[in-house]
Design a protein around this nucleic acid. Structure first.
Length: 687
RNA sequence: GGCGGCGUAGCUCAGCUGGUUAGAGCAGCGGAAUCAUAAUCCGCGUGUCCGGGGUUCGAAUCCCUGCGCCGCUACCA
């Protein structure tokens, strides 16, 4: 099942990650790791392959993130572009080029694409009524309109969805809508946009889909569902200041819709790659020559864009190849729950690489790749797979072989002599493995590939046991030499076969085998026949996969459990507190008073605590406050602060605290003691 | 509401176009071995294959239906 038959080159893309947040495990398992494994394998097969990715940097969520943090959209995308690029590199992602859609080449490319379609009369122009903020002087994206939810009455619903009851909305449905930018009441105003009439491509797309063999059932299912619903017109422009300007004089203040420009990012990034190689036209070979096999790796949320809209755009344009396959993955869950970027329920790649080894994560994620259904990442299982498979089966086989060779043969490859049945079976196993693993990777069945791969190491351990070289070393040295010779060849084979999934370990293993060549440049098909001549000196042996301990992953598990507990409401969360209305009587129970700080000192052996002596009119008290990370004793002595005077006394780290100081803290960790506007005497009550 | 995917041993999952006593890994139990990262190898158990109906000589595998989980999409058929 050589999918690659009939093709001269392969162009692989992974979904452009959206540059408003960091990369997490779900992204990796779905769109990035499978592609990287696929590409690394194709390189070892000596095929002409390039791997293209980059940051998707336009669209409303980015302008919202910018508003929120008070910086420009460009600053947001700069931050995440470089952070994500760096994190990917540390994870071993082998992109040939990692571009970004804010680049000039991309702007030019997508404008040219738009103009070509526009020139062919592909688009429809439609006028429609949209909400407009007169004070800000702009049309409001759905997310920028707030108002009362018509379903549940929640006052802070957004124009696209109510966060409270979950119903999806359109901005005109909201009662008492206001602009999120200026709080002005938005007005309906006419605006014009260009639409791509996808319905015109319905037949062409259906016919093309019908020729797609070997596509995954989940992908075909989604596509057919869309097709049977009938394809509708879809806007390719919108009123926004952040994005690729629509290259028409009458389209001032309009940009290309992000869904339209993002996939063109694959093309722009390929152009930039070609330029960087000093061959500016090379990109055309990969995008416009029918002998190119184009493969898009994505998550299931992206199916419609890569199987319907982008192909329709490419068909309309006419110069481009269409995707050969779109092996979309399902989603990865985390410890049994859905990942959530906004709730911080995720494992972030940049955090992971600071604390742990990369290859065990690549291995575990590949073994649980959500190929046919959602799968689950569990730290405990990650640890088990690392210890019992990578360390005990694969690593230990290589280690026992090398240790034995070092001890009995001075670290030199012993000569092979007559082969018995077991020897021949082992040799057959390593000859057969590249084909089997390869055909699984070719079909993007990574779990299968990994199972076959690990079975080679299992077989090798059995072979070692059955031949008992520790006995034959005395009784039959020639047989012992043969056994170890074959084990060493097996190690050599494993070192290359692990490269797509375990690139860093492959380098280590290859060096341990005494090679000074590049493991990434080996030839997949000939791997079992690579010669290790008798007398070849092996490199220095070291442990390939370290065993991990429970205590290393315990903090990670606890962190996730805490977040879940908060989401379930076991721990009160801010939102419910905000919502709770209290009576004046409730408020009156709290005595707030002004206090003057007389003395302050750090509480020994704590990070956060200060012990304060305060004056409340005629009364003196001692309180303990958790502000030491933000304020030193010197900074607070003499200050007038606000305290809760009638709080039950408590002992904190054994020190009595008779009251609580008030301070404000925002989401970004900005922290301030409450202070007074004018001078009043200490002890004054607050009402 | 419509559509799609999935529902198999304690856990995580394989089982292609229907055909011998339904499989693997992990966990558990027993044994062998001692070269090796307290590593390896061998043996052992359990399953109304989500429920119900149907097609067939024969279904985990095909069809219908109900339930559950996940996702896409929506008041428009």
């Amino acid at each position: 099942m050589e999918h690659t038959k009939g093709y001269k080159r392969i162009l692989v893309t992974s979904a452009l990650p959206y540059a408003n947040g960091p990369i997490h495990l779900g992204h990796l398992a779905g769109a990035y790791l499978p592609a990287d494994i696929y590409v690394r394998y194709q390189r070892l097969k000596k095929r002409d392959v390039i791997y293209i990715c980059g940051s998707d940097e336009h669209g409303v969520p980015i302008t919202i993130a910018a508003e929120k943090t008070g910086v420009s959209p460009q600053e947001i995308v700069d931050e995440f572009h470089f952070r994500n690029k760096e994190a990917f590199a540390r994870f071993g992602m082998s992109f040939d080029y990692y571009g970004r859609t804010s680049s000039p080449v991309h702007h030019k490319t997508s404008q040219a694409f738009f103009l070509k379609l526009h020139g062919q009369g592909v688009f429809k122009k439609k006028a429609e009524q949209q909400l407009y903020d007169p004070k800000a002087g702009m049309f409001l994206p759905d997310r920028y309109v707030k108002g009362e939810c018509p379903q549940c009455g929640y006052a802070e619903a957004y124009g696209d969805q109510c966060e409270k009851c979950g119903t999806s909305l359109s901005p005109t449905e909201l009662k008492n809508p206001v602009s999120a930018l200026t709080s002005e009441k938005p007005q309906l105003k006419e605006t014009e946009h260009w639409y791509i009439p996808l319905g015109h491509f319905q037949k062409q797309i259906s016919d093309w889909i019908a020729t797609r063999h070997g596509w995954k059932s989940n992908v075909l299912g989604q596509v057919k569902s869309w097709l049977s619903d009938g394809l509708a017109d879809r806007a390719v422009t919108r009123d926004l200041s952040w994005g690729v300007d629509v290259p028409l004089p009458e389209a001032k203040g309009k940009v290309l819709y992000v869904w339209f420009d993002a996939p063109i990012g694959y093309i722009s990034a390929t152009k930039e790659w070609a330029e960087a190689r000093g061959d500016p036209h090379l990109w055309k070979t990969y995008w416009q020559d029918a002998e190119t096999k184009l493969v898009h790796f994505i998550g299931k949320d992206n199916i419609v864009f890569h199987c319907i809209m982008f192909p329709a755009m490419l068909m309309a344009h006419g110069d481009y190849v269409l995707p050969n396959n779109v092996p979309a993955n399902e989603f990865l869950n985390l410890e049994g729950n859905k990942l959530s970027t906004s709730k911080n329920y995720a494992v972030w790649l940049e955090d992971y690489v600071e604390k742990f080894e990369v290859d065990p994560l690549r291995y575990y994620l590949a073994t649980i790749a959500p190929e046919t259904k959602d799968s689950d990442f569990a730290w405990q299982e990650y640890l088990t797979r690392n210890n019992s498979e990578l360390a005990d089966i694969l690593g230990n086989f290589i280690n026992r072989t090398l240790a034995f060779t070092n001890k009995q043969f001075n670290g030199k490859v012993p000569a092979r002599s007559d082969l018995d049945d077991l020897d021949q079976m082992m040799l057959r196993a390593i000859t057969k493995a590249p084909k089997e693993i390869g055909s699984a990777i070719e079909k993007v069945e990574l779990r299968k590939a990994l199972t076959v791969f690990m079975d080679v190491a299992r077989t090798a351990n059995k072979y070692f046991n059955d031949q008992e070289p520790w006995k034959t070393v005395r009784e039959n040295p020639a047989k012992c030499a043969t056994t170890i010779n074959i084990c060493l060849h097996t190690c050599n084979t494993l070192a290359v076969l692990m490269e797509p999934v375990l690139p860093f370990s492959a380098e280590k293993a290859w060096a341990m085998m005494g090679h000074d060549t590049d493991v990434h440049a080996q030839v997949w098909d000939g791997v079992a026949k690579i010669e290790l001549p008798a007398g070849h000196q092996l490199g220095k042996t070291s442990i390939l996969f370290r065993k991990m301990e429970e205590k290393e992953i315990q903090p990670e598990i606890e962190r996730l459990q805490n977040i879940q507990a908060q989401l379930r409401g076991d721990v009160p969360v801010e939102e419910t507190q905000e919502e709770m209305k209290i009576s004046y009587e409730d408020f009156a129970k709290i005595q707030l008073r002004v206090a003057k700080v007389l003395a302050a000192e750090f509480v020994p052996k704590t990070d956060k605590l200060l012990k304060l002596h305060i004056q409340l009119g005629t009364e003196r008290r001692q309180i303990v406050a958790g502000i030491a990370q933000k304020y030193s004793p010197e900074q607070v002595i003499g200050k007038k602060i606000i305290i809760v005077a009638n709080l039950q006394p408590a002992k904190i780290r054994g020190i009595e605290s008779n009251g609580m100081l008030l301070a404000a803290e925002d989401d970004n960790g900005n922290f301030s003691l409450l202070a007074l506007d004018k001078e009043v005497n200490d002890g004054a009550a607050i009402r």
